[in-house]
């Protein structure tokens, strides 16, 4: 007779081993690489922190890291803010929940690259938006601030990640017993007050989950900034990609990756602490 705990371990073993191998081994390799150095064509395998010194003192790295966090932050805020009303609608205002949940997954039915290209077509100099505005005589010249900047990156990523934000928020809204909102009304609160004092604090876990799910991958995204970001939309991952590609400096690339990972981890922890504390202070 095996205990519950050992049964649980046995059940999770395949996934744990799979993920463990595919995460810890590459991560270990990355750490080792970050302490080596690139010498023209070969790798010098003496342990040194020179890559870290270089990366941490380079203003470009710092600039790209700050910009990546800023863009990912913007994407997170925009996505969560747009996703919340949709999740609220599905949780409370419609009987056709399954249909709506199916509809919000539609973006996944086409490839991610295609979606990014569509945004390029919409926002471009001769794109859908500019053509429409021109033919309506609302503008004389095509707008140039639409594409190849931070705005384009934020727009594209917010669209791509919306379903990932809607689902966790929907789940946390779904858990709210409707009688709690009636109790709030009964105790004299207007609908808006009930939202801020009951619904919002009770959905903090959903908001936090949605934020992390969006923030962490978007900081490291390099496809979207490369395609629609132009030069002012470049992010840290683009620099890392160059190290592993054209620049052929794997040790520096590994170092940059680890620095980005640690920074994102710290920002995420800070966010979780702040959001949870803020949620608890609402009473």
């Amino acid at each position: 007779m095996r205990s519950e705990a050992s049964k649980g371990l046995a059940l999770s073993a395949p996934a744990s081993l799979y993920v463990g191998a595919l995460v810890s081994i590459p991560l270990g390799i990355l750490v080792v690489y970050s302490f080596w150095t690139q010498t023209y064509v070969s790798i010098d395998k003496t342990f040194t922190a020179v890559n870290y010194r270089e990366a941490l003192t380079d203003p470009l790295v710092r600039h790209l890291l700050v910009r990546s966090i800023f863009i990912a932050g913007m994407v997170t805020i925009a996505t969560v803010a747009l996703a919340y009303p949709i999740a609220y609608f599905i949780a409370f205002r419609t009987q056709k929940k399954t249909l709506w949940l199916l509809l919000i997954t539609i973006p996944f039915w086409s490839s991610y690259l295609l979606r990014v290209f569509s945004w390029k077509l919409i926002l471009g100099f001769n794109g859908v938006l500019n053509s429409a505005l021109l033919s309506l005589n609302l503008i004389d010249q095509p707008l140039t601030f639409l594409l190849y900047n931070e705005l384009a990156v934020v727009l594209t990523l917010a669209h791509a990640w919306a379903p990932f934000a809607i689902l966790p928020i929907y789940v946390s809204l779904q858990k709210i017993d409707p009688s709690l909102l009636e109790a709030a009304t009964d105790l004299g609160l207007s609908p808006a007050e009930s939202f801020f004092r009951v619904t919002l604090p009770m959905t903090v876990p959903g908001i936090v989950a949605a934020s992390l799910i969006i923030f962490i991958p978007t900081v490291g995204d390099y496809v979207t900034p490369a395609l629609v970001g132009g030069s002012e939309g470049k992010m840290i991952a683009n620099l890392i990609q160059v190290q592993f590609g054209a620049a052929n400096n794997w040790p520096l690339g590994a170092t940059l990756s680890l620095i980005a990972m640690v920074t994102v981890g710290l920002v995420a922890i800070l966010f979780v602490v702040l959001a949870t504390t803020a949620g608890r202070r609402i009473r």
């Binding site: 009688s179 709690l180 009636e182 109790a183 009964d186 949620g279 608890r280 609402i282």
Partner: peptide
Amino acid sequence: PTNMVFQSYAIFPHL
């Protein structure tokens, strides 16, 4: 000017 005791009690779980 009424208040209610709900069947499920509807105690706010976050408070």
